[in-house]
C-alpha cells in the first residue's frame, strides 16, 4: 500500500468501457493466489479491451498483489500486448527465416492490398490490423500467422483473402 495510492489518475477509459474493469476483476479471481500469472492476466485484459489500458495495469497489480511497476515492465517487454486500442483482429504474420522463404511476404502483401492499409494501421471499420512479427514458434505451419491467439497456416495469398472474408463474417467481437 503505497502512500500515494488512491489518488485519482488521468482516466483513459470512457464510460462505456469502465464496466469492463469488473469483467476483468472476475477474470483475475482464479489467478489471484497463483504465482507467475502476470501474462495470463495481461492476456485477459487484452481479450476484454482489445488492448491493455492503464486502468487494467493498476487493477492487475492490485488484484495479484504485485508491484505496479513490475506489471508495467512485463506489459512493455512483450510485443504481443497492445497499449492503444487495437483492431478486433490482429493478424500477426511471421517474418522470420523459414516463413519468409515459404512466402510470408506475399501473405502480408495480400493482406495489405485487400485491406488498403499498411502494417500497423487499423482499418477504418476497426476490424483489422497487420503486424510483421518475429518467430511464432509455428514453423510446422510455415508460412504461419496468428489471428489474435488463433493459429493459421500454411498460408498463401489466396488463403489470406479467404481468411479476411471468414473473419468479416464473424464480425466485430
Amino acid at each position: 500500500m503505497a502512500i500515494h495510492s488512491g489518488a485519482p489518475r488521468r482516466a483513459t477509459l470512457d464510460d462505456a468501457e469502465r464496466p469492463k474493469l469488473d469483467q476483468l476483476r472476475q477474470a483475475l479471481a482464479p489467478l489471484r493466489d497463483e504465482p507467475g500469472t502476470t501474462l495470463e492476466a495481461l492476456y485477459a485484459a487484452q481479450d476484454i479491451f482489445s488492448y491493455v489500458p492503464p486502468e487494467a495495469v493498476t487493477l492487475i497489480a492490485k488484484e495479484l498483489r504485485l508491484p505496479e511497476s513490475e506489471v508495467f515492465g512485463v506489459l512493455t517487454f512483450y510485443s504481443m500486448f497492445h497499449r492503444k486500442p487495437a483492431a478486433a483482429y490482429v493478424l500477426r504474420v511471421c517474418r522470420d527465416l523459414s516463413c519468409h522463404l515459404t512466402g510470408a511476404p506475399q501473405v502480408l502483401h495480400a493482406f495489405n492490398q485487400a485491406l488498403g492499409a499498411r502494417v500497423g494501421e487499423v482499418t477504418e471499420d476497426g476490424l483489422f490490423e497487420t503486424e510483421s512479427v518475429s518467430c511464432l514458434g509455428l514453423c510446422d505451419l510455415q508460412p504461419a500467422l496468428m489471428v489474435n491467439l488463433e493459429q493459421h497456416g500454411p498460408m498463401t495469398a489466396d488463403k489470406a483473402r479467404a481468411l479476411l472474408d471468414d473473419l468479416r463474417a464473424r464480425g466485430a467481437r
Binding site: 503505497a2 500515494h4 495510492s5 489518488a7 489518475r9 492503464p54 495495469v57 493498476t58 497489480a61 508491484p67 505496479e68 511497476s69 513490475e70 506489471v71 508495467f72 515492465g73 512493455t76 517487454f77
Partner: peptide, 22 residues
C-alpha cells in the same frame, strides 16, 4: 516503484505507467 520497461536497446527505467505513484 521502478522497473525496467520496454526491451533490448529500447529498455529504460521507469515507474509504473510513467507515474511515480508508489
Amino acid at each position: 516503484a521502478l522497473d525496467f520497461v520496454e526491451r533490448a536497446v529500447g529498455t529504460f527505467i521507469a515507474p509504473a505507467q510513467h507515474e511515480f505513484m508508489d
